[in-house]
Nucleic acid binder design. Structure first.
Lengths: 216, 216
DNA sequence: TTTTTACTACTGGTTTACCAGTATTTTCCG
DNA sequence: CGGAAAATACTGGTAAACCAGTAGTAAAAA
């Protein structure tokens, strides 16, 4: 892990060109920081990371192609010493804490000031967990309904959940996924169990509450 | 209204310093454009506008202090010739159309490319209504659920819908409401019909989308 | 390497939901 | 009061969901 007086190689993974430019402009002032590149797609960055050393990644967790969460995990798996700072406008406590579990070293909302941004970068490079001011406030003020933990679903389960929310029946899903209806039933059963609900109606409501299905 | 070969005075009203920097950087390349200033609060900009001529405003409609909608209206009231381009990440059709009603000349999502941004600026300055690519698609492809009007439910049906969303089964509801299970079934059937869905999963999703059940 | 997790698949049930009608009673508005 | 809308109830059937197990295989984690 780089110390703050070392030279820092930084990458930006972010969907919005404007934000990329803004970050670059702000960080260009810092002589210790080299911007290795900016990426609008997670897969592109992963490819880059396979061939280059990156000390710190500013990662928008709301990317279109892959979930930023998954990407964060992939980054830490491939290059554990790379510090990941999550960048988003999401201000929900559960999401912030979740990204930390995926290996991020901090969470910044996009309205950080430049001084705040640089401070957080330095803290993160020192190995600390760091947040922008607004996020700190969110963290310290937990909401009641956020106590019940969000069940972790497998990829297949997420897929089934999505299909169920679209009104698909078990045989329809079986055909669509080329598996036995009995398999689908098993997934459904596990979903009900994981969410601790006893029918589809409750399942949908729980999934919506946990924002595991978009609704649109 | 300035033509594109005139000199254009531009202002940015935007909460996120990073985005401000990004916009400045992208627009700095254009010699015809002078950036009069950037403002993180609507009230600051209104004060500025009282004493300076501004041709075009890039306005984040998600500002913290005042609603961006209201600010847009105020700008057009004070200086009708100032072109307002809304800037946001909101991708809901209704919101986009609303801001146009408040006098904006276009709507850009923040993931516009720089060329797209400049194109939109030019179009707007020519007096046209302009959108970034993603927004165009949203406008021309209205979601299905925005067409079919919200079904009107009877008091009893709303009650049943609520109970269903709590995971109650038909016999449970029958007991709770002291009616025959067959009655409950009829209500359920009518709910499915009114929402034009074919099972509970879809019903829940539709009800959530129409905000007919809270979710919390 | 061992263990765990995820995905797959099955048996044999029970329960609940869904469909298409019809029909009676209650409620509420003009 | 009369009529419409809503709520109630029923028949009779089909489809889907839900339950409780068991279990093989492949891939990932310890």
């Amino acid at each position: 892990m780089s110390l703050m007086n070392d030279h820092v190689v930084l990458a930006i993974v972010e969907d919005h060109p404007i934000v990329i430019e803004g970050l670059k402009t702000l960080l260009k002032e810092e002589p210790q920081i080299t911007i290795a590149g900016s990426f609008t797609r997670g897969s592109d960055f992963m490819e880059f990371l396979r061939h280059h050393k990156v000390d710190l990644v500013l990662l928008d967790i709301m990317l279109p192609d892959t979930s930023g969460m998954d990407l964060c995990r992939d980054i830490k798996k491939l290059s554990p010493d790379t510090v990941v700072l999550a960048l988003s406008n999401h201000t929900e406590r559960s999401i912030i804490l979740q990204i930390l579990q995926y290996g991020a070293s901090g969470y910044l909302v996009k309205n950080v000031s430049s001084t705040e941004l640089l401070n957080c970068l330095k803290e993160a490079l020192r190995g600390e967990i760091t947040f922008s001011q607004e996020v700190k406030e969110i963290i310290t003020r937990p909401a009641q309904h956020e106590f019940k933990q969000v069940p972790t679903l497998t990829k297949r389960e997420k897929q089934i959940l999505q299909l169920v929310s679209q009104g698909k029946t078990t045989p329809m899903m079986a055909q669509e996924l080329n598996v036995s209806p009995l398999t689908i039933e098993t997934h459904r059963r596990n979903l009900l169990q994981k969410f601790d609900v006893k029918n589809v109606a409750e399942l949908m409501m729980a999934a919506v509450q946990h924002k595991m299905i978009t609704g649109y």
